[in-house]
Amino acid sequence: RKEMTAACTPRRRIINLTSVLSLQEEINEQGHEVLREMLHNHSFVGCVNPQWALAQHQTKLYLLNTTKLSEELFYQILIYDFANFGVLRLSEPAPLFDLAMLALDSPESGWTEEDGPKEGLAEYIVEFLKKKAEMLADYFSLEIDEEGNLIGLPLLIDNYVPPLEGLPIFILRLATEVNWDEEKECFESLSKECAMFYSIRKQYISEESTLSGQQSEVPGSIPNSWKWTVEHIVYKALRSHILPPKHFTEDGNILQLANLPDLYKVFERC
């Protein structure tokens, strides 16, 4: 597991931080080997919608929660590849102030007048994250320049770009939802926020969305749709870069829909 690298990086740093090793061990302890084997050997059937997909393993048909699986995938990559990410360069710098204002204007932020003026909160978020810029760049390849612009994001899987519609809320939550006081809790909560931002979430995906850094293989055609990215990038990574937690067998994120021999018997009677 320590050699797990989802995106190509030129050289690998050895990380011996106790906090990170502890988080890696927790993933191992909570892992479910049968689910790992199923995901490793599954045959992708198709997307139901951005949140759900169908896959077959041996004779069984499964309904998989793409949102939760991708979130767990990105969390584990962030923990196992800690401080070893490439950088996704933004085509132009994104001012943190503008991103924070967009987030505060969104109902998702939960902002009320009692929280104070949005401009003041946005300025605080910019200054707060600028103070964390060195650590964010060093460990997470999340790059913020001296003017308070976001200029780079971590490359977690080759050819995958997170849904940038979720970027404003991500920046807001970096400042408000991460435990910045304790090292282990900081790395864990920061990785979880980043994983949620990178995950496939239906509120940020339309039929026209593209999450891939590449064009489709047909010359002159439109960019790959999110469905292509889910199948050929995300579920491909799920084959080798995730140890599913045991609770996925109990919380409805992986559901067995049918045993195909039983279905064949039904059709034979028709």
Rank of each mutant, 00 (worst) to 15 (best):
R1N: 12
K2E: 13
E3S: 10
E3G: 04
A6R: 12
A6I: 12
A7H: 11
A7V: 07
C8W: 12
T9E: 08
T9M: 10
T9D: 12
T9C: 11
P10W: 14
I14R: 10
I14C: 08
I15K: 07
N16E: 04
L17G: 10
L17N: 03
S19L: 15
S19P: 03
L21V: 04
L21R: 02
S22V: 11
S22W: 14
L23H: 15
L23Q: 11
L23F: 13
Q24A: 13
E25K: 04
E26H: 11
E26G: 07
N28G: 09
N28F: 14
E29M: 13
E29L: 10
Q30T: 10
Q30D: 10
G31V: 09
H32W: 10
E33L: 12
E33P: 14
V34N: 08
V34C: 11
L35P: 11
L35S: 04
R36L: 14
E37K: 10
E37N: 11
M38S: 10
L39S: 03
L39N: 08
L39Q: 11
H40I: 09
H40F: 11
H42E: 09
H42M: 11
H42C: 09
S43W: 14
S43D: 12
S43F: 13
F44M: 10
V45I: 04
V45D: 10
G46F: 01
G46I: 02
C47A: 06
V48R: 13
N49Y: 14
N49F: 14
P50M: 04
P50K: 09
Q51L: 13
A53T: 10
Q56N: 06
H57W: 11
Q58V: 11
Q58A: 06
Q58N: 07
T59L: 10
T59P: 13
T59E: 05
K60I: 09
K60Y: 11
K60H: 10
L61K: 01
Y62V: 15
N65G: 04
N65C: 12
T66C: 03
T66R: 00
T66L: 03
T66S: 09
T67I: 10
T67D: 13
L69M: 11
E71R: 08
E72F: 11
Y75K: 05
Q76H: 14
Q76R: 09
I77M: 08
I77R: 06
I79S: 12
I79W: 15
Y80P: 02
Y80W: 07
A83K: 02
A83L: 02
N84T: 13
N84M: 13
G86W: 13
V87L: 08
L88Y: 08
L88K: 07
R89W: 15
L90C: 08
L90Y: 01
S91F: 14
P93E: 07
P93N: 05
P93S: 04
A94I: 11
P95Y: 04
P95T: 08
P95W: 12
P95Q: 07
L96R: 00
F97K: 03
D98G: 03
L99Y: 03
L99T: 02
A100T: 02
L102W: 13
A103R: 00
L104A: 01
D105C: 07
S106Q: 02
E108A: 05
E108W: 03
E108M: 04
S109R: 01
G110W: 12
G110D: 01
W111D: 04
W111K: 02
T112K: 02
E113L: 08
E113T: 05
E114A: 04
E114N: 05
G116E: 03
P117S: 15
P117Q: 11
E119C: 07
G120V: 15
G120D: 02
L121H: 01
L121I: 01
A122F: 00
E123I: 14
E123M: 14
Y124G: 01
I125G: 03
I125W: 01
V126S: 03
V126D: 12
V126P: 01
E127Y: 15
E127Q: 03
F128Q: 01
F128K: 02
L129R: 01
L129V: 14
K132D: 02
D138V: 06
D138F: 04
Y139G: 06
Y139Q: 03
F140G: 01
F140S: 02
S141P: 15
S141K: 11
S141Y: 14
I144T: 02
D145W: 00
E146Y: 12
E146Q: 05
E146C: 07
E147D: 09
E147F: 12
G148S: 04
N149T: 06
N149H: 05
N149R: 05
L150T: 01
I151Q: 04
I151W: 12
G152I: 00
G152Y: 03
G152L: 00
L153Q: 00
P154E: 00
P154K: 00
P154Y: 00
L155Q: 10
I157R: 05
I157P: 00
D158R: 06
D158W: 04
Y160E: 00
V161M: 04
V161G: 05
V161R: 05
V161L: 02
P163A: 06
L164G: 03
L164E: 03
L164H: 06
L164S: 04
G166H: 13
G166Q: 12
G166V: 09
L167R: 00
L167Q: 00
P168I: 00
I169N: 12
I169H: 13
F170P: 00
I171A: 02
L172T: 02
L172F: 05
L172Y: 02
R173A: 15
R173Y: 02
R173M: 03
L174A: 01
T176K: 01
T176N: 01
E177N: 14
V178P: 07
V178K: 00
N179L: 06
D181G: 02
D181A: 03
D181P: 03
E183H: 04
K184I: 10
E185S: 04
C186N: 02
C186T: 02
F187G: 01
F187K: 04
E188D: 04
E188A: 04
S189R: 02
L190K: 00
L190S: 01
L190M: 05
S191T: 04
S191Q: 11
S191E: 02
K192W: 09
E193G: 02
C194Y: 07
C194S: 08
C194M: 12
C194G: 04
M196K: 06
F197A: 05
F197Q: 01
F197H: 11
Y198Q: 02
I200W: 07
I200C: 12
R201E: 14
R201K: 11
Q203M: 10
Q203R: 04
Y204K: 06
Y204M: 09
Y204E: 08
I205W: 08
I205L: 09
I205M: 08
T210N: 08
L211N: 03
S212A: 07
S212R: 11
G213W: 07
G213V: 09
Q214G: 07
Q215W: 12
S216V: 10
S216R: 08
S216P: 08
S216L: 08
V218I: 13
V218M: 07
P219Q: 08
P219R: 06
S221K: 11
S221W: 11
P223Q: 06
P223N: 06
N224V: 08
N224I: 09
S225F: 12
W226S: 03
W226R: 06
W228A: 09
T229K: 12
T229S: 09
T229F: 10
T229Q: 05
T229M: 07
V230W: 02
E231N: 14
E231T: 14
H232T: 10
I233L: 09
I233R: 10
V234W: 01
K236A: 13
K236N: 13
S240N: 06
S240M: 10
S240W: 09
H241D: 13
H241N: 09
I242K: 12
L243S: 08
L243H: 08
P244A: 13
P245V: 13
K246Y: 14
K246M: 13
K246Q: 12
H247G: 05
H247P: 13
F248P: 10
F248S: 12
F248A: 12
E250M: 14
D251Q: 09
G252C: 11
N253L: 04
I254Y: 09
I254S: 10
L255P: 04
Q256N: 07
Q256D: 09
N259F: 11
N259L: 04
L260N: 07
L260C: 09
D262E: 08
Y264Q: 03
Y264A: 03
K265A: 03
V266M: 15
V266S: 15
E268W: 15
E268K: 12
R269W: 15
R269S: 08
R269T: 07
C270V: 15
